[in-house]
């Protein structure tokens, strides 16, 4: 129950007897196997667990789900995670004590990991549709979990389009995906913009909302997945509305402080939703019904 099918509906129905008895607060011991320096303040950590002498993925995550990463003796925090056959990828920006320390570690470091947490993107419901991904800055990390899913299941989806922006060319994360992997995928338009260019930047310069307005993506049979800084989201939602995207077809993730990850410790609620359990993924239509307190 816990690991296989933790949708909010199922969780709501789950009785004591149906819940698998594990101690959900204890991290699983794992190792950092690879660290990619994405930008000056973002690194991607590959995390695997050792099992019978093999390095394997600690647990599988669905697109949009979260993992609680801890550095022993430093702290623990929740991050968006995407899985591969033998590892989890967590892309982490330096913003506080824990993330500062994480940026100092080297491959081979022991870390603790627990999860997966949260509902994830409703990929089944998006099947057969066009998907418009919009991301700003480190917001590409959660969006990328869905992009990877769509690329891996390319035939299940119609056209793919990613609109991504960052402060400067140096701040673009996942450049290997942006400029190599994804443009090679069939029917996948990748549109990148930066707030300020540099001498070598040949691409678009401008903020995401304005760039999106120029690109004029077609809302017909299209679902939009958007993550980024609140200010970008705020203005982009206005453009999406103008372009004709309905609130039901705009999906985003919400962020709150989390400690337990399992809907017990209280702090991550927005109204009666716990973001760690019922989120972090919500449609704009759902968010409109929630108190504006995030």
């Amino acid at each position: 129950m816990v690991k296989d099918n933790a949708t909010p509906e199922n969780l709501a129905k789950a009785t004591t007897e149906e819940i698998k008895r594990i101690n959900p607060l204890i991290p699983m011991k794992a190792k950092v196997t690879k660290i990619i320096e994405e930008t000056p303040d973002v690194k991607t950590f590959y995390i695997s667990k050792e099992e019978n002498g093999q390095m394997v993925v600690p647990f599988h995550t669905a697109p949009g789900q979260l993992a609680m990463l801890s550095l022993p003796g430093v702290g623990e925090a929740m991050f968006s995670a995407t899985d591969a056959p033998d590892h989890l990828q967590l892309s982490i920006k330096k913003v506080g004590t824990l993330t500062d320390e994480l940026h100092e570690i080297v491959p081979g470091q022991t870390v603790g990991i627990r999860g997966p947490y949260g509902n994830g993107f409703p990929m089944d419901q998006i099947k057969g549709k066009n998907v418009l991904f919009i991301a700003g800055g480190i917001g590409l990390a959660p969006v990328r979990t869905a992009v990877r899913y769509c690329v891996d299941h390319r035939d299940d989806f119609a056209k793919l389009h990613l609109v991504y922006g960052s402060r400067s060319p140096a701040d673009l994360v996942f450049q290997y995906d942006l400029f190599e992997t994804w443009p090679a995928v069939r029917d996948f338009q990748v549109s990148v913009t930066v707030d300020r260019g540099d001498d070598n930047w040949k691409g678009n310069v401008g903020f995401v909302p304005a760039f999106l307005e120029e690109l004029k993506p077609n809302p017909d049979n299209t679902v939009c997945i958007i993550c980024g800084p609140p200010i970008m989201i705020k203005f982009t939602l206005g453009i999406l509305d103008k372009l004709g995207f309905t609130a039901e077809n705009v999906i985003t993730t919400l962020e709150m402080r989390m400690k337990c990850g399992i809907g017990k410790c209280g702090r991550c609620n927005i109204g009666s939703c716990y973001i760690c359990l019922d989120g972090p993924v919500f449609t704009l239509a759902e968010m409109k019904k929630m108190p504006n307190e995030y």
Partner: peptide
């Protein structure tokens, strides 16, 4: 502590 998918041990 005892419902909604996870039990606090």
């Amino acid at each position: 502590f005892l419902t909604r998918g996870y039990i606090d041990e």
